[in-house]
Design a protein around this nucleic acid. Structure first.
Length: 511
DNA sequence: CGAAGACCT
DNA sequence: CAGCCAGGTCTTCGA
């Protein structure tokens, strides 16, 4: 007999009569364990109502707030809340939600995946990551100086001072004063000054490259270099929050600070990641799933071309190019491979011919032929796409590997635009959500691995298809191997899962 | 507080 | 003729 979620949670709550830690804010901030389950995450999970019915997304919070808190803010002192009420609230919620979760067939997802993940995430948040404060300071100094220089140069070139950070003022300067050609509009109708537009203007005016560099430097300064050192906790480490219910697809998100969007590209990106280090006497192991979303696509579609490419561990982009251009994979040029890569990524997003033509710089008709040819070659893939949409239309939702659902009533809309957006979301959710399921399973497996634990390895970050583990210098190689093996073997698909592993003193080295 | 932009997978 | 591909978080501007 399968215990209901409510019963199981009720059992765990029974033993707890009060909150272990006196400071409610730190309780929420670090998700300190309470009867084995971190309290904040408990309430997160109680919001699982949203898995069933988005209209009731706030059900949990409204109830909780009325029972526990006076206003919107968390109280400063524990005296302002009623310890037992927290348990009562969670219990009440789960009594309502538990049966609904079970009857929707989501009990397994909640009890076998999401709930076991809770303490794993709590441990990761508590572990945090070390940053090299001196390198950060040096980096910040250089970037700040460069921002000052560029500000001066840009003002000179524009022949007047203006706020470079303001897209409105930027638009006026570029398109009115300097008479440059607008390259597109924003959703709201203003002339866009986004990077993609500016890049096409390079060479037309010397100010453009300066603006592009200014934006890069300013982003580094304002989002990473300045705020992050201020967030170093007493333990000398930075602690993020991993949000379990923030995305529509089942991915995690990270906030306060977001450690899932630390720069990686280019010289600066590399330098930035090098500032994220292992602690004293420790090393980092970074393991990332190779092409996991395309492998998931191969798995679900069973497309023989994709499946065989992954079975033989071929370069998937070259393989796609070979198929499209009727050539031997060895004869594929850089450009052809690049085009194939664009298509492969586009497939994951449900890309249409318009965007493809823009991406590849070819005509619309050409792009249509391109896509037609692709689907001709991979008709099994097309059947899979159609079946996802059909499932979505019939059920009102699509389902990932673990049974997670995303409601997509928009599939039945009358607006062609809404329908095609929902189509893309349906396809992408099955792929992206299943990849999220896989890495969540892997995280639980890694966290439970007694050998890794014994060697002193601990998970510290997840970046969608990558796990970052910190461990003692002398055992990091072994930890890395175990990590890689756990990730690869966590589930068995129609194609093998491949995991690339890197080790190092810092995050850049480990890549 | 929404818009625009930039960073990530 | 245009139509701009999925999922996030954070900063800044300006009403």
């Amino acid at each position: 007999m399968c215990k209901s979620v409510a019963t199981e949670l009720a059992d765990k709550l029974q033993g707890a009569k009060s909150i272990a830690t006196p400071d409610v804010k730190s309780l929420f901030r670090f998700d300190s364990a309470w009867c084995g389950i971190p309290l904040a995450r408990w309430f997160d999970i109680s919001l699982s109502a949203y898995l069933l019915n988005p209209e009731e997304r706030n059900y949990g919070w409204d109830r909780l707030r009325s029972m526990l808190f006076v206003g919107d803010e968390l109280p400063d002192a524990v005296d302002e809340v009623h310890p037992d009420a927290q348990g009562m609230a969670a219990l009440a919620l789960m009594h309502v939600l538990g049966p609904r979760i079970q009857s929707a067939g989501l009990g397994e997802l909640i009890t076998s995946l999401e709930i076991p993940l809770i303490p794993v995430l709590a441990d990761m948040e508590e572990a945090g990551i070390t940053i090299d404060l001196e390198s950060f300071a040096d980096f910040l100094k250089e970037v700040s100086e460069r921002v000052t220089e560029l500000t001066k140069v840009i003002h000179e070139r524009a022949d007047e001072p203006f706020n470079i950070r303001s897209s409105q003022q930027m638009s006026t300067i570029l398109f009115e004063k300097l008479g440059l050609k607008p390259g597109g509009k924003t959703p709201k109708g203003a002339l866009s000054t986004a990077n993609s537009v500016l890049e096409k203007l390079v060479g037309q005016h010397e100010i453009i490259t300066d603006i592009l560099e200014f934006r890069k430097m300013e982003k580094l300064r304002s989002t990473y270099l300045e705020p992050l050192p201020k967030l170093v906790a007493k333990d000398g480490r930075i602690h993020t929050n991993f949000n379990q219910l923030a995305t529509a697809t089942g991915r995690l998100s990270s906030s306060g600070p977001n450690l899932q969007n630390i720069p990686i590209r280019g010289e600066q990106g590399k330098r930035m990641r090098a500032c994220f280090t292992a602690g004293e006497g420790m090393r980092l192991a970074a393991a990332d799933y190779s092409q996991v979303e395309l492998r998931v696509l191969a798995h679900f579609s069973g497309d023989p071309t994709l499946v065989s490419a992954f079975e033989h561990d071929e370069d998937i982009h070259s393989r796609t190019a070979a198929l499209l251009f009727d050539k031997d994979p060895a004869e594929i040029t850089r450009d052809e491979r690049g085009n194939a890569k664009t298509i492969n990524f586009g497939l994951i997003y449900g890309m249409g011919p318009q965007k493809l033509s823009r991406e590849l710089g070819i005509k619309l008709n050409e792009a249509k032929e391109f896509i037609a040819k692709y689907f001709e070659k991979l008709e099994v893939l097309k059947e899979f796409y159609d079946s996802v949409v059909e499932q979505g239309r019939e059920n009102g939702y699509v389902t990932t590997l673990s049974g997670r659902r995303r409601l997509l009533p928009e599939l039945l809309s009358t607006s062609p635009q809404i329908i095609s957006q929902a189509r893309r979301q349906a396809i992408n959710t099955v792929i992206q959500g299943s990849a999220a399921d896989i890495i969540k399973m892997a995280m639980i497996k890694v966290a439970d691995n007694a050998e890794i634990k014994h060697l002193g390895g601990r998970l510290i970050l997840q970046i969608h298809d990558e796990l970052l583990v910190e461990g003692p210098e002398e055992s990091i190689e072994e930890i890395g191997k175990l990590l890689q093996e756990d990730m690869q073997s966590v589930t068995s698909l129609a194609v093998p899962l491949k995991v690339d592993l890197g080790l190092g003193r810092n995050w850049a080295q480990a890549h």
